[in-house]
Design a protein around this nucleic acid. Structure first.
Lengths: 199, 199
DNA sequence: GTCTATACGTCGATAGAC
DNA sequence: GTCTATCGACGTATAGAC
């Protein structure tokens, strides 16, 4: 597909998403202006409206894309349903950590900016989030049923484990004391213990 | 101390803090205007500046008060240093849950609005937060040293357990399936397991 | 202590030139 | 595809009347 000479649209669209992601993560949706984003992209504010209907759509698209990426990546990565709950839990934890540590900004926005979505947009993201929680809840329930795990409430355990894993994003730094590999092992231990896994 | 007739200062000051807490928690600091807060309080926007130097001070005072309340409440509640790490951990978890479920708005703001603090104000809150994390870290370290607990990294375990506990605030509802007492027991199990407590 | 009025900046979003 | 210019609304904060 030939590109018009002087046209820069695809590149600008990508830059817009990236600049918005970084700025929203750093300063918060409400505190970031379209002019700020435009400055980062290197265009004037008006030009942004060629790529997004409005500021709200910009936020929603970022969150929606992130959740779709997450669920799709899991579908690809998930081990076949035949394996044990223990193996599935290990797979989930490792997947979660790898995926989330590579997208710190997106994860941050996805948890901080939910309240800045319109009710309709919020519902869409909420549904995706519940689907993700459902993955973990299914694993815990299966393990609980067969006696591999031991938690007093699978729903609460699901929330607790997700919160624990998401919390990693608030302190992990690439240049810090721990490598991703080490973090993965540490959290795997914590999650397995919390789930009461008989290993 | 006699109150001037027509004067309403103390009441307004209190209403200001309460309205700001609710609105900041619901819509976010950046998205809430002084006019909105004033409307909630029942005064004009200009009158708020009798009680706060500016919007930033208002946010900081709320967070600072919350952290001071938290640390002071722990000092009162904390069991004497002689007891076992296991007992201390149980005490900490029960304390955390009770304290945090009674102040959902303050907790929410304290975690969501850190980035809207000026660097100087941020440092103050960060120090208080680290002090709170330090309480848990001390308990875990002590238990780890004497073999009661079993975690692969006490620092990460501290972060993970705090995240898990804080996460409770995002889903707990008074009118929900679980009573505070039940939540307390469920999280106690989860934390003890995560810490690898030999019970 | 609270009001009204307002200074002054910035916001999101659009119109029309190039 | 991007620019400049602009609209109308709203933001924080202050001044001065009562």
């Amino acid at each position: 597909m030939a590109r018009k000479s002087g046209s820069n649209g695809e590149k600008t669209a990508k830059q817009l998403r990236e600049a918005a992601t970084v700025l929203f993560a750093k300063n918060g949706y409400a505190a970031v202006s379209m002019r700020q984003i435009a400055r980062e992209v290197g265009v004037q504010a008006g030009a942004l409206y060629l790529y997004t209907a409005d500021k709200q759509s910009l936020l929603f698209d970022l969150l929606d894309q992130h959740m779709q990426d997450l669920l799709q990546a899991w579908d690809v990565r998930a081990t076949p349903h035949a394996v044990t709950p223990m193996d599935r839990l290990e797979c989930f934890v490792r997947f979660h950590i790898r995926f989330h540590l590579l997208r710190t900004d997106e994860v941050f926005i996805s948890y901080m900016e939910l309240r800045n979505l319109t009710p309709e947009n919020f519902e869409v993201i909420q549904t995706a989030r519940r689907a993700y929680e459902g993955i973990l809840h299914d694993i815990l329930s299966a393990g609980q049923a067969e006696g591999t795990f031991n938690v007093s409430d699978t729903k609460v355990a699901t929330y607790a484990i997700i919160a624990m894993l998401i919390g990693m994003n608030t302190w992990y730094r690439d240049e810090g004391r721990l490598s991703i590999d080490m973090v993965e092992e540490i959290y795997l231990d914590l999650v397995m213990s919390a789930a009461g896994a008989k290993r």
